[in-house]
Design a protein around this nucleic acid. Structure first.
Length: 266
DNA sequence: AATGGGACCTGCGCGC
DNA sequence: TGCGCGCAGGTCCCAT
């Protein structure tokens, strides 16, 4: 699921629902999800703590429990959070002092839960490039200028620019009419500016509509996002191009599926 | 150094 | 209806 807009949607709802709540108990049914410390240390470490702050770094949620204690949640592909009643499908359950629970949902069990002294120590976070929503045009231009990697692959490289995933990377290239197979350094100044603008605008639009529920993703209340209805290329292989009405094609780039319009995206 | 494939997991939709 | 296959929003690791 969760690219920047989905994680940001969850963050905003979490701020309202769990800030200042105490975690009174914790249950895990898929211990593999806990990457550090040990499962028992993790459990001991979260119980009794109060949620001080809920933040987001690219696609990760960082929940501050103490100055030196952070709960880090990476939802990976299929993770989401459900607040309210305990859910039988939950992979982990945080029991809260308001009598409600926070269910960690993840059909594919690929997500990661961590408890760390400081989230900034995490290797993955250290390596993250600037956030897609914040990166300046000149920084973005610098990124592309010396790289011959395919632009689509580059947009997904979190160490260069963070927050975009396979849905929104396809969307921004389509809206910018840039072929995903183009070498990054082949983009003109005009194309680079257009792409940069589309990255910012689509992420903002997606946040406004509470993300895309193309599959498992749901918001904190279990409701679908509204953005999937507005997507123009993602998952639309063989359907008509929004611009020219010719059929969209699907190719594989960097191991990921990619829909695009060979006619409009030059 | 860059690229491609597989691994991690489960569940869904499709075609036969 | 039942089964096997391909595929899925992310990231890491390895081989070439």
């Amino acid at each position: 699921m969760p690219e920047l807009p989905e994680v940001e949607t969850i963050r905003r709802e979490l701020v309202r629902k769990i800030t200042n709540k105490k975690i009174v108990n914790f249950k895990i049914t898929k211990p593999k999800l806990i990457k550090e410390p040990s499962v028992s240390e993790f459990k001991k470490g979260v119980i009794g703590e109060r949620v001080k702050e809920v933040s987001r770094k690219a696609k990760l949620l960082t929940i501050k429990l103490k100055e030196d204690k952070f709960l880090i949640i990476h939802l990976k592909i299929a993770g989401w959070l459900l607040y309210g009643e305990e859910d039988p499908r939950a992979r982990a359950v945080f029991y809260l002092s308001d009598g409600k629970v926070l269910n960690y949902m993840d059909s594919r069990v690929l997500g990661e839960l961590r408890l760390c002294k400081n989230y900034k120590d995490l290797n993955f976070i250290k390596k993250l490039g600037p956030e897609a929503l914040d990166i300046s045009l000149s920084k973005f231009r610098e990124l592309l200028i010396s790289r011959k990697a395919k632009i689509k692959v580059l947009l997904l490289d979190q160490t260069l620019i963070s927050g975009l995933g396979n849905i929104y990377a396809q969307e921004v290239l389509f809206l910018s009419k840039i072929n995903p197979q183009r070498a990054a350094n082949s983009l003109s100044q005009k194309e680079t500016r257009l792409l940069h603008g589309k990255i910012v605008s689509i992420l903002k639009e997606a946040i406004k509509h509470k993300g895309s529920s193309v599959d498992t993703y749901r918001d904190l209340g279990g409701d679908r996002g509204g953005m999937e209805k507005r997507l123009k290329v993602y998952g639309r292989k063989d359907k008509k191009c929004y611009f020219c009405k010719r059929p969209l094609k699907k190719i594989s780039l960097g191991g990921r599926g990619n829909c695009f319009c060979p006619h409009c995206q030059k």
